[in-house]
Amino acid sequence: MLVHRGVKHVGSRMCCRYASTNSGKQNTAGKDEMIRFRSHVIPCARENLARYGGRQTVTALPGDGIGPEMIDHVNRIFSFAQVPVDFETIQVSSENPREEDLENAIVSVQRNGVALKGNIETKFDDPHFKSRNMEIRRRLDLFANVLHTVTIPTVPSRHKDIDIVMIRENTEGEYSGLEHESAAGVVESLKIVTREKMQRISRYAFEYAMKYDRKKVTAVHKANIQKLGDGLFLKIASDIAMAEYPEIKFNAMIVDNASMQLVSRPQQFSGGIMLMPNLYGNIISNIACGLVGGPGLVSGMNFGDKYAVFETATRNTGTTLAGKDIANPSAFIRASCDMLRYLNFNEYADLISDALFETLTVQRIHTQDIGGTAKASELVNSLLENIEKSCVNSKYRFRS
């Protein structure tokens, strides 16, 4: 446990003297990689977040599978580092899919403004079962899904120097959920594309590129076949690029070619943004996560005008790993750091993110999914030790 003596917190500033290279183990290249490991998050501008006395209340949605133990890991880290966040835990599960639980979760996020979420399993064998994940995104109008995929030194991967931001429209397209059986054995699924939402996600991507100096935006589409739906998306993205953001390089790529290019030469997308409609974004993002080490490493962010929900990038429950202390907590920890940046708790976010980076790259604590033998709890223990070392010269004192 971390205890401070006679030291005050000022706003979101942590009164621990913290430097990411204080261990002496990080050279300049390592420091650059550590900084690149941190995701860029547009901070919240809302004044009415549930923040009282400098502490922020956050909705925790553990979900199914490994979600509850991941929330426990984050709770332990936040408590150790004295992060000024309190979790309001709401249970939403596929095992007991009560509408009341979903409503409680949505009301909680609306009240607090932000959530940290595990995945809720969707029963694909029941056509009447609505995806809780989709309902949360739709009801809160979380229109932008943002992923940052970056290669991590010491984590096995076929490619190096990957640094790609994926921005995906999150509320419509093939995920509109409108299907019906028009005749026996004939199913119609509706893909809904609207000018308003295509403009909104396109501008979000270009604004993100401007803010964080991303040099290129690549729109991924299938307009050669879906000439109206994807054609509208492509035209809107092209028009906005030309008229409003001429300083950013814009190009377009058909989704099947983009998939091949991503696995054969992903470096061509590094330093840029891949902008995608909903379904293609889901598929392409999972490919990108696989390129940098798999589902246990990458976080995912969901933004709307009013609310934000943070989770793992690949949205899998990891049910077969639950309760075994082997599921990689890195993606969930990175999601919690993204959340802290959104809340303007940047010092805490950097402290935890850099401690995780050192755990993976200096101590080389790797779980089974990335070629190691470490337990999840061992990874977290190493992270906490790195936090303690970062603050060893401060006025903080630690005790077990």
Rank of each mutant, 00 (worst) to 15 (best):
residue 3 V to F: 12
residue 6 G to F: 01
residue 7 V to D: 00
residue 12 S to E: 11
residue 18 Y to S: 07
residue 26 Q to W: 13
residue 27 N to T: 10
residue 32 D to C: 13
residue 38 R to H: 13
residue 39 S to K: 11
residue 51 R to I: 15
residue 53 G to N: 10
residue 57 T to H: 10
residue 60 A to W: 04
residue 60 A to F: 07
residue 62 P to H: 02
residue 63 G to D: 09
residue 67 G to F: 00
residue 84 P to A: 08
residue 91 Q to L: 11
residue 104 N to S: 13
residue 105 A to G: 10
residue 106 I to T: 06
residue 125 D to T: 14
residue 131 S to F: 08
residue 132 R to L: 09
residue 136 I to C: 00
residue 137 R to I: 07
residue 137 R to Y: 01
residue 145 N to W: 05
residue 147 L to Q: 12
residue 163 D to A: 05
residue 166 M to G: 12
residue 168 R to I: 03
residue 189 S to N: 12
residue 196 E to G: 06
residue 197 K to Y: 09
residue 213 D to Q: 13
residue 225 I to Q: 06
residue 229 G to I: 09
residue 230 D to L: 06
residue 234 L to A: 03
residue 234 L to G: 05
residue 235 K to V: 07
residue 238 S to H: 09
residue 248 I to F: 02
residue 250 F to G: 05
residue 256 D to Y: 05
residue 260 M to T: 12
residue 262 L to D: 04
residue 268 Q to I: 15
residue 270 S to T: 08
residue 285 S to Y: 03
residue 285 S to G: 13
residue 286 N to R: 02
residue 287 I to Y: 00
residue 287 I to D: 06
residue 303 F to N: 07
residue 310 F to Q: 01
residue 310 F to N: 04
residue 313 A to F: 00
residue 317 T to V: 13
residue 325 D to A: 08
residue 331 A to M: 06
residue 331 A to T: 06
residue 334 R to T: 11
residue 337 C to E: 07
residue 339 M to G: 02
residue 347 E to Y: 09
residue 354 D to Y: 09
residue 362 V to I: 14
residue 365 I to R: 10
residue 366 H to M: 08
residue 369 D to A: 09
residue 393 N to H: 12
residue 394 S to N: 01
residue 397 R to I: 14
residue 400 S to G: 12
